Amino acid sequence: MNASTLNDVAILIPAYNGQRELERTLASFSEDGPVRVLIVDDGSTPPIVAPSIRGLDIEILRMPVNGGIERALQAGIDALAERGVRYAARIDTGDLATPQRLAKQRACLEAYPRMAALGMWTHVVSTEGAPLFDLKPPADVATIRRVMLMRSCFTHPSLMLRVAAVREAGNYRAQYRAAEDLDLLLRLMERHDCANLPEFGLYYELNESGISATKRRTQVLSTLRLQLRYFRAGNLPDWIGVAKSLAHLVLPYRALRGLKARLLP
């Protein structure tokens, strides 16, 4: 691959403390050419320091105070647009990328101009790196549209986003706390296609202190609001999705995590 191929791609990673984990995440990227990185330091104390990692051109955007991931990502997308970046590759601190992830995603987005977001399958691991289970959401656009309110069709840190489409849709926003990814994707799908590459692109660290655990009720309530907003009465998966969200409000997090591990392929 020509080294200039990824010139219009940037890794977008919000960070709040966790310098060591951030460096490990960025060091996991393995591409044939140099890659730009925008770290959005969301008020870390001490401030995040840009690591020196071969193959990565790293810039830090510092938020004045800790305002949450939604505002950090919104600022990051706007900053990338100002810099002329076309594709934003999401990842979170603690997660790891598989080799050539960015090149594969960019090639697919280039081939399908109607596509605004492209995810990949995910290995879910513990904080020690032990395998827990795999996430293999549907890959094709039609299936995703049918079941998008029933199950999580995307792993947010695996996404590559078309920056112009994200801004056209209104960017990330804080209206649906802890469900900013679903909110964005549902808006994107009103005018564009979203899909997954049916191969593994991410090692996702399941952290008990992460958003899904510590803000679970907020996340579920935001998800339920989105499900009701986009609800299609004639689509059975939408009914199932609402029922699942209601169950999430009453069942313990650990019980749900164990059930997911047993049921997912």
Rank of each mutant, 00 (worst) to 15 (best):
residue 32 D to E: 12
residue 227 Q to F: 03
residue 223 T to K: 13
residue 166 V to R: 00
residue 208 E to C: 07
residue 215 K to C: 11
residue 29 F to I: 09
residue 244 K to F: 11
residue 109 L to E: 11
residue 11 I to K: 05
residue 79 A to P: 08
residue 22 L to M: 09
residue 179 A to T: 07
residue 248 H to A: 07
residue 165 A to Q: 10
residue 3 A to L: 04
residue 265 P to M: 03
residue 58 I to E: 01
residue 157 P to M: 03
residue 46 P to C: 07
residue 44 S to H: 03
residue 68 G to S: 01
residue 231 F to I: 00
residue 8 D to G: 09
residue 261 A to Q: 15
residue 216 R to H: 15
residue 256 L to N: 13
residue 95 D to L: 02
residue 223 T to W: 14
residue 210 G to Y: 04
residue 54 R to V: 05
residue 20 R to V: 12
residue 107 A to P: 02
residue 116 A to D: 11
residue 249 L to A: 05
residue 116 A to S: 14
residue 68 G to P: 13
residue 48 I to Y: 03
residue 177 R to W: 08
residue 87 Y to N: 08
residue 242 V to F: 02
residue 180 E to C: 02
residue 74 Q to F: 10
residue 147 V to W: 00
residue 65 V to D: 15
residue 161 L to T: 06
residue 115 M to E: 12
residue 72 A to R: 09
residue 31 E to I: 04
residue 155 T to W: 07
residue 250 V to L: 02
residue 35 V to T: 00
residue 177 R to H: 10
residue 42 D to N: 15
residue 199 E to W: 10
residue 38 L to G: 00
residue 110 E to Q: 11
residue 212 S to Y: 14
residue 166 V to P: 14
residue 216 R to E: 01
residue 52 S to T: 11
residue 151 R to S: 13
residue 43 G to Y: 04
residue 21 E to H: 13
residue 239 W to C: 00
residue 69 I to M: 09
residue 150 M to Y: 00
residue 92 D to K: 10
residue 117 A to I: 13
residue 126 S to E: 01
residue 99 P to A: 07
residue 190 E to I: 06
residue 107 A to M: 05
residue 212 S to F: 15
residue 103 A to F: 05
residue 160 M to I: 13
residue 62 R to K: 14
residue 170 G to D: 02
residue 192 H to P: 04
residue 238 D to A: 01
residue 168 E to A: 14
residue 264 L to P: 00
residue 153 C to A: 08
residue 104 K to M: 12
residue 165 A to G: 00
residue 63 M to C: 07
residue 89 A to C: 01
residue 97 A to K: 05
residue 58 I to V: 07
residue 158 S to N: 14
residue 123 H to Q: 12
residue 75 A to N: 10
residue 132 L to V: 15
residue 153 C to I: 02
residue 115 M to F: 05
residue 102 L to E: 01
residue 179 A to K: 05
residue 27 A to M: 08
residue 182 L to A: 09
residue 119 G to P: 04
residue 63 M to N: 10
residue 124 V to E: 11
residue 192 H to G: 06
residue 33 G to H: 03
residue 185 L to R: 13
residue 198 P to Q: 08
residue 96 L to R: 15
residue 62 R to L: 08
residue 139 A to E: 06
residue 39 I to E: 09
residue 72 A to L: 09
residue 107 A to F: 03
residue 245 S to T: 00
residue 184 L to E: 14
residue 200 F to E: 06
residue 223 T to D: 14
residue 14 P to F: 08
residue 54 R to Q: 13
residue 60 I to P: 03
residue 141 V to I: 12
residue 188 L to K: 06
residue 232 R to L: 03
residue 193 D to E: 06
residue 107 A to L: 13
residue 105 Q to E: 03
residue 246 L to Y: 02
residue 245 S to L: 05
residue 208 E to Y: 05
residue 75 A to H: 13
residue 65 V to W: 08
residue 115 M to D: 01
residue 250 V to A: 05
residue 51 P to H: 08
residue 105 Q to A: 08
residue 133 F to Q: 09
residue 99 P to C: 10
residue 240 I to Y: 04
residue 209 S to D: 12
residue 183 D to Q: 00
residue 1 M to Q: 07
residue 146 R to I: 00
residue 198 P to H: 04
residue 210 G to K: 00
